[in-house]
Design a binder for these strands. Structure first.
Lengths: 206, 206
DNA sequence: CGCCCTACCTACCAGTAGGTAGCCAGTTAG
DNA sequence: CTAACTGGCTACCTACTGGTAGGTAGGGCG
């Protein structure tokens, strides 16, 4: 039975392991997480965990593929919207914030993977993301050509936006300490999203 | 003592260890780096390394303190410049790019530390950086009050800038793959710096 | 010369990592 | 009732970790 609801009691052990692994890998990284940690979090022993996943690397890859599929789905939906001009850019930014706020652990894993140049994951990370990157570049370029946006180099623009947005989630623990506040409360995420939207609008829309 | 003899340059073994440790920690993180890796990179055995540093943690802390002192010095010089208005903001951004381009390994270590909430380093990271953060906030707030910059929340603005700038260096390996190019060549760094300066100028200067 | 000191070494320690073998309770199928 | 399967367990393996013990080559110096 595959129930789509969030009832934790009905989750299979496999799903519980994936959840715990996601959290541990996001929190302490691949090397910093032991299978004992994950197993203890689930409430079983390490060999039982290895009954569900062939190896640590296989578990990590499964976690990462959950991440990728969720991101691709969420971002492609937003990017394929029929909106245009600034409306579409704002829609994608807000969709990104929603997505990342919902799954901040994914952001931290992605950031760790970017730092490690994707050594731990079998899939070709940049190959997966390049279509989104290219399509975003194409969109901004065409809008700039049409005179709707100020002229910027599209690739640099996307990279700047990628860094500006993801950092708020990946470095949330650090930002917490810097601000003496919780970065990831719904209100603070909304405030920061509004700021980023206004900031990019000011930079792009003449 | 000028112990210039032996194989490499005039650097002491201690300095060679610090250099290699910086590179390893930046590349693979604290947990992902073993003392054997570092020792092998220097060309000695692990116990010899531990003759120069009391423990792995002490070595890491020393590396991190090199980083902090270099950053504090570089950024404080730029931020204490007598310039004002946009000139000063651009000066600080360009100083940051120079600093980070000179020491990209530091950026990656800092990012890892932000992800890990500073567990590996004894010093109070956010306590160290908060003075710079506060002074940057104060500067932007006063300039916005004076009507020189568009109105933005200063804290969010700094965080956005922090993310936008640091990410280019911390995620350079990933960006390399995405662009099929070397992000950290002098020309590409300069191009990206010019873009960030123009982007922030467009967002801030009415 | 003897003596100390630095910088390195080999050999080893206890602890932990990921992973395997095999046993066992509960459930289900025939 | 028995057989097979499922999902957990204990016990164990090898490899490697950070760190220690003890020894040694060589330079400076009274």
């Amino acid at each position: 039975m595959s129930d789509v609801t969030e009832e934790s009691s009905s989750k299979t052990t496999r799903e519980l392991i994936l959840d715990e692994a996601l959290h541990c890998f996001a929190d302490r990284g691949y090397e910093g997480t032991s299978l004992n940690d994950i197993a203890a979090g689930v409430g079983i022993r390490r060999p039982s965990l290895l009954h569900h996943f062939a190896s640590k690397e296989a578990l990590y890859t499964d976690v990462f593929e959950m991440l990728l599929s969720e991101w691709l789905e969420g971002l492609e939906v937003a990017m394929s919207s029929p909106a245009s001009g600034w409306d579409k850019a704002e829609l994608v930014i807000r969709a990104g914030f929603d997505l990342f706020a919902r799954t901040p652990d994914y952001v931290r894993i992605m950031r760790r993977e970017a730092l490690d140049s994707g050594v731990h994951v079998g899939v070709d990370l940049s190959g997966f993301l390049r279509p989104l990157f290219d399509s975003a570049c194409a969109y901004f370029t065409s809008e700039m050509d049409a005179g709707h946006f100020r002229r910027h180099n599209a690739q640099h623009l996307i990279i700047t936006g990628y860094g500006a947005i993801l950092t708020y989630f990946s470095d949330a623990p650090f930002i917490d300490e810097l601000l003496n506040d919780q970065a990831l409360t719904p209100e603070n995420v909304r405030d920061h999203c509004d700021h980023v939207v206004a900031f990019f609008r000011a930079a792009l829309v003449a």
